[in-house]
């Protein structure tokens, strides 16, 4: 085999990767269509299309434009964000137990939200989300700062993971204390905890959009560096990668993505824990592909789970977090059993 004979193989691989990408995009497209048309009131596809392109103010138009569309958009955004954040987090920590809320993001958001309820009497969902986002960012920055102190070249993954777990436990303790003492906070908290993308409205979508877009851009920029890092710090440095910068960019991306998602949709960070384990067999160890695959798979899964939650328990709905766990986790376990797990 000569140098030129290697090239066709590489082309093959790239074609396969684009094929998987197309498949995931198609799955997401299907999920979006289902999410817009199915619900307490099913809308046929042509009507749904008309509602989107040429609304005339019928009941269907209102349902689709003011309820289904923002709900679907939020599902896509949160699923993308959590899948991508999970892949990044597991790559940086090289730990299969790392979920994107590991740096204290989820518990930071929870604590800030319940605090805003008892201290400031925050009422609207819109207000909670700002507080949740602020709490998530603060907690994550705190964890990273804790990990930074002392060592050169940035915090090690193990330090970060442990510091994050400790800070999360600390904040969770405080949150529990608050909700046990305040019934109103408890009532908000338990629904937030179950995770939902229902009844959020378009303003919430606009609210989290900039954070998630920024996070996605940073995440994709982070993937080549993450590939270098996965060969060990010395090799990565030898390849000209700035380790501290790579880690900082990764953490920032994870924080933006996860913070925005959990503030808007509740404690769904475990999506980011499961999804990369599902996509890793498709992508191999190359983060440039693993990260986008995980994002698309996360979005498709989240939407499908949400659609199922709308129809299984009429007239009510099951929270998306519950459905995701009930469907996604057994699927995940089956996959883990069937294949030799792809280690980090």
């Amino acid at each position: 085999m000569t140098a030129t004979a290697v090239a066709p193989r590489l082309h093959d691989l790239r074609r396969r990767r684009f094929l998987v990408l197309t498949g995931l995009l198609a799955a997401l497209g299907l999920a979006v269509v289902l999410s817009i048309t199915i619900g307490a009131k099913s809308v046929p596809l042509p009507d749904a299309w008309r509602a989107l392109t040429d609304p005339t103010g019928t009941e269907n138009d209102i349902v689709i434009r003011s309820l289904r569309l923002p709900r679907t958009a939020l599902g896509v955004l949160a699923g993308l964000a959590l899948g991508v954040a999970g892949a990044l987090m597991q790559g940086h920590t090289r730990n299969p137990l790392a979920d994107p809320g590991l740096l204290g993001v989820t518990q930071g958001a929870a604590f800030a939200m319940v605090s805003s309820i008892i201290l400031l009497g925050a009422q609207s969902l819109f207000a909670y989300i700002w507080f949740g986002l602020a709490g998530a960012l603060l907690a994550s920055v705190g964890v990273f700062a804790l990990g930074m102190v002392g060592g050169r070249g940035g915090p090690t993954p193990v330090t970060l993971a442990l510091a994050g777990t400790a800070v999360s436990a600390f904040l969770y303790g405080l949150t529990s204390a608050i909700v046990l003492l305040d019934e109103q906070a408890m009532d908000v908290f338990r629904f937030w905890q179950a995770g939902s993308i229902a009844a959020r409205g378009a303003d919430v979508v606009w609210q989290v959009l900039p954070f998630i877009v920024a996070g996605l851009v940073l995440a994709m920029a982070n993937t080549p560096g993450l590939n270098a890092l996965s060969l060990g710090e010395d090799v990565a440095r030898g390849l000209g990668q700035n380790i501290a910068l790579t880690r900082a960019v990764g953490v920032t991306a994870v924080t933006l993505l996860t913070g925005a998602s959990v503030a808007a949709c509740g404690a769904l960070a475990f999506v980011g824990l499961l999804v990369p384990h599902l996509t890793r067999p498709l992508s191999g160890t190359d983060h440039r592909w693993l990260v986008p695959y995980s994002g698309l798979a996360g979005a498709a899964l989240l939407l499908l789970a949400d659609v199922i939650g709308r129809v299984v328990a009429p007239p009510g709905e099951l929270e998306v977090g519950v459905v995701l766990a009930l469907i996604g986790a057994p699927f995940f376990v089956a996959l883990v059993r069937r294949r030799k797990p792809v280690r980090l």
Binding site: G240, T285, R343
Partner: peptide
């Protein structure tokens, strides 16, 4: 520096499942 000087540390480790071609391709990182 990485475009001029290559370093191979002692006993480096790669993630499981990485193919030879993928590993070699990562040398193009800089």
């Amino acid at each position: 520096v990485a475009k001029v000087l290559g370093v191979l540390p002692q006993a480096p480790t790669a993630p499981e499942g990485l193919t030879v071609a993928d590993l070699v391709a990562r040398g193009r990182h800089p």
